[in-house]
Design a binder for these strands. Structure first.
Lengths: 216, 216
DNA sequence: GCATATTTGTCCGTATGTATA
DNA sequence: CTATACATACGGACAAATATG
């Protein structure tokens, strides 16, 4: 289904990219009038785009006050990782040797490794995210896949809070590789254990980083 | 001109209830002009309500054709149960003896039993749904709770396809009780096993019921 | 295949209520 | 308390796509 260039979907995509890139920092207000003028769309269309982004929890809709780029609290980070543990662990246990999810996960690790060699840190981060999304793909439920994509989009907000988002991802390339290796030998319990450690460490790092930013 | 009772949120709530009650059968189109006149809200407000319901997957938005009450395919039912298995199993394993989730689940079973004695089958269905929602509450992630609520709202569409939605829920009251008993003795593996059987049987029943309805 | 009517998509202007300065 | 800014909702208008004859 193709949308017009000025449609709500396209507007949401532009804002999504801008937020992920850090152009609009967490906490900044997205004024309807200013943005509708800036992006060349009507207020109604912009409001529809806001609704899409609010659904993804990238922006926060405060009643009668406006729309703001979401600022994650430590509670948000904890919540996100609790959800990821459930989904990714289920993915590990549903992952068979011939599962396309395993192939995709392995490909993501390889892409991350190559990007790291070239110093393309943004690509490393994207590949890291793709790896975790691939794990959940082993569970045969598109609804869970959609949720996982949403959680990972929200994670990008957390990454923005770290001093060095690139280094954050780079540290985990080898650990992703270890998970793939365990899955390839059919040792799902070992893979689940490695994943659990991964998530614990990543959560600790991000909670520490988010601790500095005061809520609202 | 009748004064509108409320905004988009209230309009969505009214439509949600009407759909769950079967007033609008799956597949029927929800005309903008007719409904905005019927509910006493403007077209813009109604469209806003449609977006909320589409987000919950209760209605389907076809570009330039309109909004329809969602008609679940067998693939949808399978997908829903795959997602429920992941979430509810995680809830079982996160459920401790002093967990509020266990208390809520037990209360839901008791409410279902009382309603069944009085022949209040609609209440039995509501309590059954509340039981499964309670299980997932043991997982400390609000994002998963929201997803579970969304999945259960979608499940109501599947229940509408059964010949006798009331009997469907009534059959499972005792099995819910058995799960609670297992959890109270701390035997989470037994509870998970009982839950797995429950979900398998329920899925089979609904897939058989949904098999008759052909997709548009 | 074509012309028509109907329905949806988008945008505008305005009025009202609410929160903030 | 007043003034400002903003979100919410309404009604109308026209464009675009679809359905119908």
């Amino acid at each position: 289904m193709t949308r017009s260039v000025g449609g709500a979907e396209a507007t949401a995509a532009r804002l999504r990219a801008a937020i992920s890139d850090g152009a609009y920092r967490p906490g900044t207000q997205l004024s309807e009038e200013r943005l509708s003028d800036e992006l060349g769309v009507s207020r109604n269309t912009l409001r529809e785009a806001f609704r899409l982004l609010a659904q993804e929890r990238l922006v926060e809709h405060v009643f009668h006050r406006g729309v703001f780029v979401r600022r994650l609290t430590t509670a948000d980070v904890t919540d996100l990782y609790a959800a990821r543990r459930v989904l990714e662990t289920a993915g590990i246990h549903a992952c068979t040797l011939d599962s396309p999810a395993l192939t995709d996960a392995a490909a993501a690790v390889e892409a991350a490794r190559l990007a790291a060699q070239d110093g393309q840190w943004a690509l490393v981060g994207t590949a890291d995210i793709r790896f975790h999304a691939a794990l959940v793909r082993a569970v045969p439920s598109e609804r869970l896949h959609v949720l996982m994509d949403s959680l990972l989009a929200e994670m990008r907000l957390a990454f923005l809070s770290t001093d060095d988002p690139a280094a954050f991802h780079a540290d985990f390339v080898e650990r992703n590789q270890a998970i793939v290796t365990a899955l390839r030998t059919g040792d799902r319990d070992a893979a689940a254990s490695l994943l659990g450690d991964y998530l614990d460490d990543a959560e600790r790092t991000l909670v520490a980083a988010a601790g500095g930013s005061a809520p609202h």
